[in-house]
């Protein structure tokens, strides 16, 4: 599927998604409430078949928190980027996609550890690298005067 076809096909998939062309890949913006359902469709639709979650990235924009999913179909070799924002910074919650792509389990755990994103229904939301009670170092407002030297 070419990227234009992908855009039209993805727009038809559900109404709650805004599909646009990013710098490299087709980008879908989904609300957290519909994320899980949308992802399930992405994997299960025969002509899309996004069965390989390459990367899952949590990002702290100052106003909201985002999770970026890079997906590829191993049969058709097309790639898309899915994004989902949550405005709540104190308890940013997104649905987990680990039942769709098992690899997400640990990528979500990493994101939870470093950014404080909470993934609902993820069975293993322990800290991954850091101790309990540590802050979330990849957040922009994280400060650690003893360990970080400002330049």
């Amino acid at each position: 599927m070419s990227q234009d076809e992908l855009i039209s096909r993805l727009s038809q998939l559900t109404e709650e998604v805004t599909v646009s062309m990013g710098p490299q890949y087709v980008t879908c913006q989904v609300a957290p409430t519909h994320l899980h359902q949308f992802c399930k469709k992405l994997k299960e639709e025969k002509d899309l078949a996004f069965d390989y979650l390459i990367s899952l990235t949590g990002v702290d924009m100052p106003e909201y928190m985002t999770t970026v999913y890079h997906l590829e179909s191993t049969t058709y070799r097309h790639m898309i980027v899915v994004k989902s924002n949550t405005a709540n910074r104190t308890e940013p919650t997104l649905p987990s996609v680990c039942d769709i792509w098992p690899t997400a389990l640990w990528h979500e755990r990493e994101s939870h550890d470093l950014l404080g994103l909470v993934y609902e229904n993820n069975p293993d939301q322990r800290r991954l690298f850091l101790e309990d009670g540590w802050g979330f170092p990849l957040r922009k407002d994280y400060s650690d005067p003893t360990r970080i030297v400002e330049r």
């Binding site: 990235t57 970026v68 890079h70």
Partner: peptide, 20 residues
């Protein structure tokens, strides 16, 4: 401004670099 993603094949598998 924008986000960029690059995939390469390292000796152990796929390395992805995501730059925002």
């Amino acid at each position: 401004e924008g986000e960029f993603y690059q995939r390469v094949e390292t000796a152990r598998g796929e390395l992805g670099v995501y730059i925002l």
